[in-house]
Structure formats: C-alpha cells, structure tokens
C-alpha cells in the first residue's frame, strides 16, 4: 500500500493517539459507562488500521513488532481466566473483590449516583483483561491479513506482486 499524501499522514498521526486514548477510556470506565473491554479494544485496534492505511505497509511493518500484540492477547486471556479461577474458593467467576475495601472494592451507594471508579471488584479487572486481549487480537488480525495481500492484473490470472 502506497503512503497517502502528507495531509492524510499528518492528520492520522495526530488523531490516532486521540483514538487510542478514547479507547483506553472506554475500557477503564467499562463498569461505569456504556462500553467495556470488547468495544474499547476495537477502538484501540483502529489505531493500527489508521496508521497502516496512511503510512503504508513498508514503513509501518518496519517498526511494529507482532510479538508485542501476541503477548497482549495471551496475557489478557490468561488474566481473564485467572481472575475467574481466583474466586474459586466460593464459586467460579465469583466477585471476590467487590465491596471489600481494597482494589476496586469501594462500596457503592444504593440508588442513582454518579459512579465510583474504584468499585465493582473483578468486573473492572476482567474489563481490562478483555480489553487487552481484544487490542492484541484485532491488531494481529489486521497485520496478518495485510501481510497476506496479493495483487493481480486485470484478467485476474497473473500475479503482479504484493502490496507492501
């Protein structure tokens, strides 16, 4: 993929970071506002797609390390399963952190209120774990599918090269 014009590249350079920050906000506030791990992770994965489209594959693939995203995906899934198993003394997926006063353990007042970020126990931990996994997984899918692009000529029979 050829790099786009300098206007597109500059705008994407700036706004990709805002997108990443917004996705992180959606993940972290998953237990207070609409959204959560899956949605916020998809927003953060847009970061990779935006840079890939604007800068072209040759430049991006020279400094992106797929091992990092692979690590993020594996860590997210293991953290999710581990949090589920950590409550196993009571039940699988038991919320053992909620209301205990420690990490994510604030007691929420009943009725309508503006929300406490340090509440909801394992729900927040699982949101972040799923967010990490979705960031890694969707970015890896974008990278792998991009590496698989082949270009063909107009008749569709002869391969003219790959688009990297």
């Amino acid at each position: 993929m050829e790099p786009l014009s300098i206007i597109v590249r500059t705008i994407c350079d700036i706004f990709a970071w805002f997108l990443a920050v917004f996705g992180a906000y959606v993940i972290i506030h998953g237990h207070l506002s609409p959204g959560g791990g899956f949605q916020g992770g998809a927003v953060v994965a847009t970061f990779m797609a935006l840079l890939l489209v604007s800068h072209g594959g040759k430049k991006l693939l020279s400094f992106v390390k797929p091992g990092l995203y692979s690590w993020a995906e594996t860590t997210g899934l293991l953290l999710f399963i581990g949090t589920g198993f950590a409550g196993l003394t009571t039940a699988f997926f038991y919320n053992f952190l909620a209301g205990e006063g420690g990490l994510f353990g604030a007691v929420v007042p009943l009725g309508a209120n503006s929300g406490i970020l340090n509440s909801s126990g394992t729900i927040a931990v699982m949101n972040m774990a799923v967010g990490l996994e979705v960031i890694g997984g969707l970015s890896l899918i974008i990278l792998y599918m991009f590496k698989g692009i082949r270009l063909y000529d107009d008749t569709g029979r002869e391969e003219t090269g790959h688009d990297r």
Binding site: G30, H31, L32, S33, P34, G36, N95, A98, G99, G105, A106, V107, V108, L110, G111, N113, G115, I116, S119, S120, G121, I123, N127
Partner: peptide, 11 residues
Amino acid sequence: QRERNVNNLVT
C-alpha cells in the same frame, strides 16, 4: 447494585 457494588447493570 447491592450484591456486586456496581452501577452498570449490563456490565
């Protein structure tokens, strides 16, 4: 809200 100390019921 009382059991799980969370405001977002969907989550």
